[in-house]
Design a protein around this nucleic acid. Structure first.
Lengths: 342, 342
DNA sequence: CTGAAAGCGCTTACAG
DNA sequence: CTGAAAGCGCTTACAG
């Protein structure tokens, strides 16, 4: 696999801009312009360059461009999970904005781990990103420091910050948790359990809302909270339902921190012959596709995940361009979906 | 926001390797070695460099490294969907192999479109990837040409190729489709429908297997095939079930090309009071988490998606290192999951 | 509208 | 084990 020439050159063998320029009979600078800012080049030269590009199959070298221009056109997105469709919908929204714009989106999966987030961000900072999209408001001190010193624009997704300076797009997880709980209380439920898994920031916020509503109604009871750090799955929901009923036999409703858990709880009730919602009301969070179709259909909270990604990317792009944002906090709201299960 | 110095410098203001070297009192080359190949540097200088890195908060510039070394450490992965958990599991397997290795994984979502695949690959080739991971065996001529001329190692995922030279990891989609159909025939079903959506390569291969089994049993009937190009969803499965029964009233089993469709079909049967499996057997493909838990539980085909990603990434890494693969085709098989619905 | 020069921040390929 | 020189493939910042 030796090079055909015997020079000591480190050339990669790939076609470069200089090759294109030579074939087109112009300076590399002109070839560069013809490709990136064609309106600045006479149509004659532009055509000659375009033809040379075609003929040689020229592919620009992104690393060289990034180095010379000090602009990477890279956007880093860190999500806590790829198996949770909530975040893949967020990613879809992001890509729909950014793909069209010649941005390269680096997707990192933090697996709900602060340490992993730190590690990924550390690696991705090497790519000198133009902007960063994160999930949630709380991050490790080192992550906060990295972001602060880099001065790269950041938009936080999913929740709304208390800090007015922080760019964020989402909805109040706390309000949503409170709203769902009040709905159950209004339906006459009294012994309302809360089932939480993963114990990520959003689950804890939803529980805060649950607590607030229970407290206000004078129904609070620590026994009613069942929290485990395991990842949310249907299987876990099925298991936790059993544990909840064993611990609180008179439990008459369960607010699951997300739909996966709720699905598992409903399926478990079907197996055990527990009537939903008559004997036990069950509700979830996020409104996954199956929730509307299963029997009984699931009462849950609809969340604007696709739009969160879409609007966050739009806001980030504006920030990168140095535009002053019309608003730093974009509240996209949530929707209570009252169905058969509660 | 002007620079503090009045030089014409294009310097980005970021800390560079030279800054580290200066502070450590060594040449940039030595600083580079201390960071990337520490075993080649005396422990004294190594420590001085490490301290300088800490003190300055040095972050290496990946673009500069890629340009100088002609090695990007980028791996491109193209999947047809991010909302389908099959592919997010594949990605998980890939990341578990590659994240540890300082590779940067670029994830592209082709949305089941050849044109989009072509566009994404075109853009990603600018990053000069060390290797590429694709889903499926068939690609547009231009994609094939790009891959051929670039000489970048490629591993195909999901199915097994007829071409012995093509690196691939997966299982026979055709055999799986045939196996599931024979299972239904062996159960005494005669009017077995096939419901397919998206019409991607894998769905068509599964249908081929279905046809083969039906033909062999003398049960083939074009009326039994219901194929639509729309994306697979639960809602679509529910709708298609209605259309299938309207068209083939004596249909006694339905093989859905994937679990989403099957879930929708089962839910629709529940709504219409159609007994599953007594009146109508329903089965799916992929064994998503809900399939084992729903009532009736879903008969389906278990597929090794995480392992496909894991093994494909492992094979690609070996190919990048120039190792001769022990085998070019890795068949990970599939498992018929016989449950309640069929 | 076009181009010659310099430089982005690293690593290769030597030489000592 | 250490380092001076050159170069990777582009774009910036000028100058004409």
């Amino acid at each position: 696999m030796s090079r055909s020439t015997s020079t000591k050159s480190r050339a990669s063998g790939r076609v470069t801009l200089s090759d294109v320029a030579r074939l087109a009979g112009v300076a590399p600078m002109t070839a560069s312009r013809a490709i990136n800012q064609p309106e600045l080049v006479s149509s004659l030269l532009r055509q000659r360059v375009e033809q040379a590009v075609q003929e040689l199959g020229y592919v620009p070298n992104r690393a060289a461009r990034a180095l010379a221009s000090a602009q990477s056109n890279v956007i880093v997105v860190l999500v806590p999970s790829l198996s949770n469709t909530v975040f893949t919908a967020v990613l879809q929204g992001i890509q729909d904005v950014l793909d069209a714009d010649n941005y390269q989106v680096l997707i990192g999966n933090t697996r709900y781990s602060d340490a992993e987030e730190e590690k990924l961000l550390n690696i991705y900072m090497q790519s000198n990103p133009d902007g960063i999209l994160l999930c949630g408001l709380t991050h490790s001190p080192r992550v906060q420091q990295m972001l602060a010193t880099s001065k790269v624009p950041v938009v936080s997704m999913m929740d709304l910050s208390d800090d007015p300076a922080q760019l964020c797009v989402g909805f109040s997880q706390l309000d949503a948790g409170e709203t769902m709980t009040r709905y159950l209380i209004d339906k006459g439920r009294r012994r309302i359990g809360f089932m939480g898994a993963q114990l990520d920031e959003r689950t804890l916020k939803r529980r805060e809302g649950y607590r607030k509503a229970m407290m206000d109604a004078g129904l609070a009871d620590p026994q009613l909270e069942l929290m485990v750090p395991d990842p949310s799955t249907i299987a876990l929901g099925a298991e936790l339902l059993g544990r909840m009923l064993a611990r609180v036999p008179d439990c008459d409703a369960i607010f699951c921190c997300n739909d996966d858990l709720a699905h598992g709880a409903v399926y478990q009730c079907q197996r055990r012959g527990i009537a939903v919602p008559e004997r036990l009301a069950i509700c979830g969070f996020n409104d996954l596709p199956a929730s509307a179709w299963m029997k009984p259909s699931l009462t849950t909270v609809g969340t604007p995940r696709y739009r969160i990604g879409y609007e966050a990317a739009t806001m980030l792009r504006a920030a990168i361009r140095g535009e002053v944002p019309a608003q730093t906090h974009l509240d996209l709201g949530f929707t209570l979906m009252a169905r058969e299960s509660a």
